[in-house]
């Protein structure tokens, strides 16, 4: 090919490629932008709808009574119940999940790991309504018959949510444990540490931020979870602060779902439900932000 022909072809090619490329780039940009816009508009809408009640200030944020009929929208019992249910579930998930992750990362033979890991991840795939139904028919009955109370209670919520949180805790914790450099482990064993000492003093401390991230992410999921919880925690008429794990409670999600069906359109009550949404969203957003920060920190320290 002669020099000029080459130049010509080059110019032509770049012209065509340039146009198509710019078009595709714009399209991709619009798609990317749409996700931001959707999030933005949802937040803006929920905030706008919630503001009339959020503006009640202390009566809303620190109010102890939630009686929409009498215009009382105190959110404390609901938020407190939400955290009681979330933290309890997380506790169970941590007690089972972290040792499970350690076993998978350190002790399990390859074939067993190949069996356990997909099974654990399959737990994520169970629709929450199915899990909730199972909880209602099996767990709630079991608690009522063997432990006491109505059966529909905090304890049932803990167990169901723990099952839902477990896969995240196990999976992320295991990744974090595996990300600890092999050389640390070898150095520790080389000094005559037992495998258990090595896990306790080297592996877990170095995987700490990942393990913590898995717990906080799990907590975010548990707090935002609706269907399964709704079906097993009983939902008394008025949100209250429970005094035993065998009592039913109402959490943020279940309150919204239950009351949205009979709320009067445009009433303060409706705004109050949106305000609950704002709180829920804020809690989950904060937890997610902490998770992201922890994972970043883990990556940073891991790479040094």
């Amino acid at each position: 090919m002669s020099d000029s022909a080459q130049r010509c072809a080059g110019a032509f090619g770049s012209f065509r490629g340039g146009l198509a490329e710019r078009l595709v780039e714009k399209l991709l940009f619009i798609c990317a932008l749409s996700s931001i816009l959707i999030v933005f508009f949802i937040i803006a809408f929920i905030l706008k709808e919630g503001i009339p009640v959020l503006a009640l200030g202390p009566d809303f944020f620190f109010g102890m009574t939630w009686k929409p009929g009498q215009g009382q929208f105190g959110v404390v019992p609901t938020v407190l119940s939400t955290f009681i249910v979330g933290i309890g579930a997380l506790g169970i998930a941590a007690v089972i999940g972290i040792p499970a992750a350690i076993y998978l990362a350190e002790f399990a033979p390859e074939w067993l790991r190949a069996l356990i890991k997909p099974s654990v991840e399959m737990l994520v795939g169970i629709p929450s309504i199915v899990l909730g139904f199972f909880g209602l028919m099996v767990l709630v009955v079991f608690i009522r018959d063997n432990i006491g109370g109505w059966g529909e209670c905090i304890l049932a919520g803990w167990v169901i949510l723990a099952v839902m949180t477990l896969p995240h805790v196990i999976s992320i914790s295991e990744d974090a444990l595996r990300a600890v450099p092999r050389t640390y482990k070898e150095a520790s064993l080389g000094l005559g540490a037992t495998p258990l000492q090595t896990i306790r003093k080297i592996l877990v401390p170095n995987a700490r931020s990942g393990i913590l991230a898995s717990l906080i992410l799990g907590m975010g999921n548990a707090i935002g979870e609706t269907m399964a919880v709704l079906m097993v925690i009983g939902n008394p008429n008025i949100p209250w602060i429970p005094s035993s794990v065998l009592e039913p409670v109402r959490v943020l999600t279940s309150t919204i779902v239950i009351e949205i069906s009979y709320v009067v359109w445009g009433s303060t009550h409706q705004h109050a439900l949106f305000a609950l949404g704002v709180i829920l969203f804020s809690i989950v957003a904060v937890l997610n932000a902490i998770t992201t920060a922890l994972i970043r920190k883990g990556i940073r320290t891991g790479c040094r």
């Binding site: 050389t183 640390y184 070898e186 150095a187 080389g190 000094l191 005559g192 080297i202 170095n206 040094r304």
Partner: peptide
């Protein structure tokens, strides 16, 4: 006990963090 009697230094310096 054996590994206590026989120390090891590796290729990459691997101090604990």
């Amino acid at each position: 006990q054996l590994r206590k009697r026989i120390g090891m230094v590796f290729q990459q310096p691997n101090p604990f963090p």
